[in-house]
């Protein structure tokens, strides 16, 4: 077995890879939510002066990227790779938002888990000695996602109580081998899990088994106790998926409920903001991590966090053809100090 692998799905990052800076831009609804103070910028309207929602999303990507560089005091020349993705077909938000960046680019897709996928790949690139500085970035936009996956915005329909609200915004993370923490210490890469849920309006239930599998595998592979972490946080399971995830993990003997939360539940006040089961989208976990989690770690309120973004890997075509929803979850272990 490769020397850095521990267990079937987990790798241990031996060389210190730290998160030098983060940046998060959020939309107006997110800017009205409980985490508003943690975003670098809140855009006033979803179009943001552009002619289409897709263009607006690309602009958010571009702006988040440049904020990240200025916060980290880096020039584009110092970044070795950007790894980015979003929900739009062929990842156009990332492709167009970063087309002028002049930095080697990997476009990735892991649906709403994309930020973990890009952070994992970026960390491996640095740990493998292929890069010094890597940017991981994702975005999503409520309007462009509705347009692609669901119905026109002005159509007068009711959303079922299990549905979730796609987060508008973008989150970016700068990974580096020169920083002084918080450090990325373990990566548990998820497998595709499909428990047969077909309802695209209940993605929390579709994704929860993937999160259960990845979290349980993480603890089995690493041998760490659950209370090693101050916070275990899934990406966008929402209220329904969060309940399922906590319950199933308990049945497997992993009772995480006293230190468990979900970015989709944290980013909105679900009742007041009428988002039903909570937030979703690539930007959901990305902005909550880049905003709330990172800042709380820097303040010392969180020391060790297991960040587990989740993704539903379906398309409109697969849904129309009656396919169930395969899901994935990747875990990234982030620690303020290196213990050993």
């Amino acid at each position: 077995m490769a020397s850095k692998r521990i267990g079937k799905q987990t790798v241990k990052i031996e060389s210190p890879v730290s998160i030098a800076a983060t940046a998060a831009i959020a939309g107006p609804k997110e800017g009205d939510g409980p985490l508003r103070l943690y975003f670098d910028m809140i855009i006033e309207d979803e179009m943001w002066g552009e002619k289409s929602w897709e263009k607006a999303e690309s602009k958010i990507v571009k702006e988040t990227f440049s904020r990240l560089l200025s916060k980290a005091d880096k020039t584009t020349g110092e970044i070795d790779y950007v790894i980015a993705g979003d929900l739009l077909n062929q990842c156009i938000a990332a492709n167009f938002g970063l087309r002028d960046s002049e930095i080697p680019f990997f476009g990735v897709f892991g649906a709403c888990s994309t930020i973990a996928e890009s952070m994992q790949l970026g960390t491996m690139l640095i740990d493998g000695g292929y890069a010094d500085n890597v940017v991981a970035l994702t975005s999503s936009h409520f309007c462009s996602a509705e347009k692609q996956f669901r119905f026109p915005l002005e159509l007068g329909t009711q959303r079922p109580p299990t549905s979730q609200w796609t987060v508008t915004g973008s989150g970016a993370v700068l990974l580096t081998n020169q920083g002084s923490g918080p450090y990325i210490t373990y990566l548990t890469t998820g497998k595709i899990v499909d428990m047969g849920i077909k309802d695209a309006n209940n993605m929390g239930a579709a994704m929860a088994p993937a999160a259960v599998d990845t979290i349980a595998t993480h603890f089995k592979d690493t041998g760490l106790p659950i209370d090693y972490y101050d916070l275990i946080v899934t990406g966008d399971l929402g209220l329904v998926g969060k309940t399922i995830c906590a319950d199933l993990l308990k049945r497997h003997g992993f009772d995480i409920s006293d230190r468990y939360n979900d970015c989709g539940v944290m980013i909105f006040d679900c009742k007041r903001q009428d988002v039903h089961s909570g937030g979703s989208g690539c930007a959901c976990s990305a902005t909550v991590f880049a905003g709330f989690i990172y800042q709380e770690m820097m303040k010392g309120n969180l020391n060790r966090v297991l960040f587990v973004p989740t993704g539903a890997l379906m398309s409109t075509t697969s849904t129309q053809q009656g396919e169930s929803i395969p899901a994935i979850a990747h875990a990234v272990s982030v620690e303020r100090d290196l213990s050993s």
Binding site: P161, G196, P209, V240, I244, D247
Partner: peptide, 13 residues
Amino acid sequence: KKEYEKYAEKIAP
């Protein structure tokens, strides 16, 4: 998968 579908349905509001 059948059992999970029933279980998820029970939890969904």
